[in-house]
Design a protein around this nucleic acid. Structure first.
Length: 473
RNA sequence: GGUCCCGUCGUCUAGGGGUCUAGGACGCCGGCCUCUCAAGCCGGAAACGCCAGUUCAAAUCUGGUCGGGACUGCCA
């Protein structure tokens, strides 16, 4: 059997990281088995669905590296299906189910229905006990599936084992709205049947819907897929991941400077592990080892700190030139102008030192702005901490004196000359260099000092030492 | 309330009757390195929710209990 899986996002918002992870697992399973990964746009909610969100979602999939395999051309992207193109199909099948007695029209008012639900609530029962085919016949309104009350609905779940639900707890759910559009339940199961989906891997929040889908499949005489209900994603506080936890849209992470590979790795590790000892792995390794059956059963908390660490790992693993090119726009936006050719060369040389100490691309830009722009003011805490001590003025003078006399201007020469200062003054290297660092970079935290000075150039370095000297008074 | 799912360090996980004095990773603490910050290296604290039962033996099996979560829409 050739595996055919799908991801069916609703274009009613940005791509949520939880949805992205579900898509990732589907994609991994398809690639692992040599199957087909399909993306279908669940846009039956015409009111809330937009083309903008659709493109945003597909763009996010692409960024993550999830490519899909078939479908018609849609919205500038190749190969997706859109449910709004198939509305006739769903309506036709729903009416067919009415014909065959599996479903019925229901024109009861929301008040009537609400009364039934409240009665169920009061009696400690499921609404399914009361929302059934009413005595009066209708030929308009919504179409509900008539849930057979015999037997139990059982199905196997690759992740959770055998599950069963009592039909008494399943209400006669709406499959076609009064405006003629299908509900999620109908559209989703019809599509899964029509596109011959073999495995449905989706969030655990849809577990209670699965028996409904199975009932629908039976009524439509389709073939049941194999189910895998993925654990949900929580915030650090153990509650369902939402806006109040920070960024929930995949695109926000992209914009914040996270690497697609790191995001891919992190999302994969959140609920699955290749062997229990490996944390960092490539897409290829994940594809080789992934199996839906090995996905964890318990919900996972999204941990921004671990993601940040992982991003740092991937940044350090980047090719140095690629890193410099990726960071360049961030440097330019930080200083508000383009880098000249000369500055670019300077930056590219020092970039590897910055690369080692950055977890997010944009922050790397901030680490080097002192090279291309005079800072307005010194970092206050840095100044207070190192520049208010005795002997700082002498240190700055020594620094100027030593550097002024240098013939060559490279980091090794600069280091050799500066190293004489702590010896001469009889103080530790740290004590001696911190004031110079603050004077030159404006902060007590910076890339390595000698390389920074080399990159800055003699003239500007001396100017900054003088400036700091003046500030001291 | 009802139905269903889940329960190993703070977090992500390995482990599926003896090899578990429970392993790895993030984070945390300490140390080394060191011009700062990182990175790197070394070390440390930190978990089988609880109670029964089965068994020579249980983190692993069973039951109960407690806790958390999802669903309970003409949203998906």
């Amino acid at each position: 059997m050739t595996v055919r899986v799908r991801m069916a996002p609703s274009p009613t918002g940005f791509l949520h990281v939880g949805t992205a992870r579900a898509a990732l697992y589907n994609w991994l399973y398809a690639r692992h088995t040599g199957g087909t990964f399909i993306v279908r746009i669940d846009d039956t909610d015409l009111e809330r669905s937009t083309r903008e969100y659709e493109e945003e979602i597909l763009g996010s999939f692409r960024w993550l590296g999830l490519d899909w395999d078939e479908g018609v051309e849609v919205g500038g992207f190749h190969g997706t299906y859109r449910q709004s193109d198939r509305l006739d199909r769903y309506a036709e099948l729903a009416m067919g189910l009415v014909e065959s007695g599996h479903a019925y029209y229901d024109d009861r008012s929301t008040d009537e229905l609400e009364a039934l639900r409240q009665r169920a609530q009061k009696e400690g029962k499921h609404p399914g006990h009361y929302i059934r085919r009413p005595d009066r016949e209708a030929d308009s309104g919504v179409i509900r599936l008539s849930v057979p009350q015999d037997g139990v609905v059982e199905f196997g779940d690759v992740i959770r084992g055998d599950l069963s639900f009592s039909p008494a707890d399943i209400d006669d759910f709406v499959i076609l709205r009064s405006n003629g559009t299908p509900t999620y339940h109908l559209a989703s199961t019809v599509d899964d049947i029509d596109f011959e989906i073999t495995h449905v891997a989706r969030g655990e929040d849809l577990l209670p819907s699965t028996p409904k889908h199975i009932l629908l499949i039976r009524a439509l005489e389709g073939t049941e897929p194999i189910y895998a209900h993925l654990p949900l994603l929580f915030g650090p506080d153990g509650k369902k991941l939402s806006k109040r936890h920070g960024a929930t849209a995949l695109s926000e992470y992209r914009e914040a400077g996270y690497l697609a590979d790191a995001m891919f790795n992190y999302l994969a590790i959140l609920g699955w592990s290749p062997d229990g000892a490996t944390t960092i792995f490539s897409r290829e390794e994940a594809v080789a080892k992934f199996d839906l059956a090995n996905v964890s059963r318990n919900p996972a908390a999204f941990d921004p700190e671990k993601l940040a660490w992982m991003n740092g790992e991937y940044i350090r693993a980047m090719d140095a030139v690629v890193f410099a090119e990726e960071v360049r726009p961030h440097v330019e936006s930080a200083i508000g102008r383009q880098l000249t050719e000369e500055e670019w060369t300077t930056f590219a040389e020092i970039a590897p030192l910055v690369q080692e100490r950055t977890k997010l691309l944009p922050e790397a830009g901030g680490q080097v702005t002192f090279l291309f722009q005079d800072f307005d003011s010194y970092d206050q805490t840095s100044w207070d901490k190192v520049m208010t001590k005795d002997g700082v003025a002498d240190l700055l003078d020594e620094g100027s004196a030593v550097l002024t006399s240098l013939h060559d201007w490279d980091s090794a020469t600069i280091e050799d000359s500066l190293r004489t200062i702590p010896e001469k003054l009889g103080i530790g290297a740290g004590k001696a260099f911190q004031p110079l660092r603050v004077a030159v970079t404006g902060s007590s935290v910076s890339p390595p000092l000698f390389e920074s000075i080399a990159a800055l150039g003699r003239e500007r370095t001396l100017q900054r030492l003088e400036r700091a000297r003046r500030e001291l008074g």
